[in-house]
């Protein structure tokens, strides 16, 4: 699903955000990306999403090189990927329904399709009754669930979350993580960058640890950090 071959990213200001990273993530995997702030997690996600191009190395998503990809092919790549952010990134002037429907309009879906599909995903994240509310009327956890619904509505093969629980309390975080697990069980590859040590240590999923731009650990059934 995701293949990084010796990928490096140096920014013009001299920061070495990622150094010689080689990663293979199979279809259907559930992966945590951990490491201190500035370790390169966000850069790695931006590279997958082709928001940035690497300085060196080769990246394949779903068997296609995204380095050689043309600019106009990028939207096609992104439609296969659902994104969830720490700060939710919902449009404040649209209802829950409209926020989710927005992602479908963007890919050219018709009104009947939207009317059928949006309630379906909202039900999946337990927000069917909140459809006509605006983001500011919802709690943080609910807003993040709207963001997840939006990420899922186009049936992506890969779901990426950048610190999805960073703004949420522990109980709500668990709730959100449970949704990700459910989504993963339905066959979607899930990649979560996180600081939530307790969650990572409890779930014992695959863990890729970054530190100062280098991959320092990649283990199945891993933990957040080894006691030193």
């Amino acid at each position: 699903m995701i293949q990084f071959f010796n990928v490096s990213k140096f920014y013009p200001n001299g920061v070495k955000a990622l150094v010689g990273a080689t990663i293979h993530i199979e279809k259907g995997e559930f992966v945590f990306l951990v490491g201190p702030s500035g370790a390169g997690k966000s850069t790695l996600i931006k590279l997958i999403f082709r928001e940035e191009l690497p300085t060196k190395g080769q990246i394949y998503i779903g068997g296609r090189s995204i380095i050689r990809m043309k600019r106009r092919e990028v939207p096609c790549l992104r439609r296969q990927i659902g994104m969830v952010f720490q700060d939710f990134r919902l449009l404040p002037d649209r209802t829950v329904f409209e926020n989710v429907a927005f992602a479908m309009q963007v890919v050219g879906a018709g009104p009947q399709e939207i009317k059928r599909r949006v309630p379906e995903v909202l039900e999946l994240v337990g927000l069917k009754e909140r459809a006509q509310m605006y983001p500011r009327q919802l709690s943080g956890g609910e807003q993040q669930r709207v963001a997840i619904a939006r990420a899922l509505v186009n049936k992506p093969t890969l779901l990426i979350a950048d610190e999805p629980t960073g703004n949420l309390d522990m109980d709500t975080s668990w709730e959100i993580i449970n949704y990700f697990q459910e989504i993963n069980r339905r066959g979607t590859t899930v990649l979560i960058a996180t600081h939530a040590r307790e969650i990572v240590d409890t779930l014992r999923q695959r863990v890729i640890a970054l530190d100062r731009g280098r991959i320092v650990r990649d283990e199945h059934q891993g933990v957040y950090a080894h006691a030193t």
Partner: peptide
């Protein structure tokens, strides 16, 4: 930017 993230063309 949200439009771009969900895969809208330019």
């Amino acid at each position: 930017s949200i439009m771009k993230w969900v895969g809208a063309t330019d």
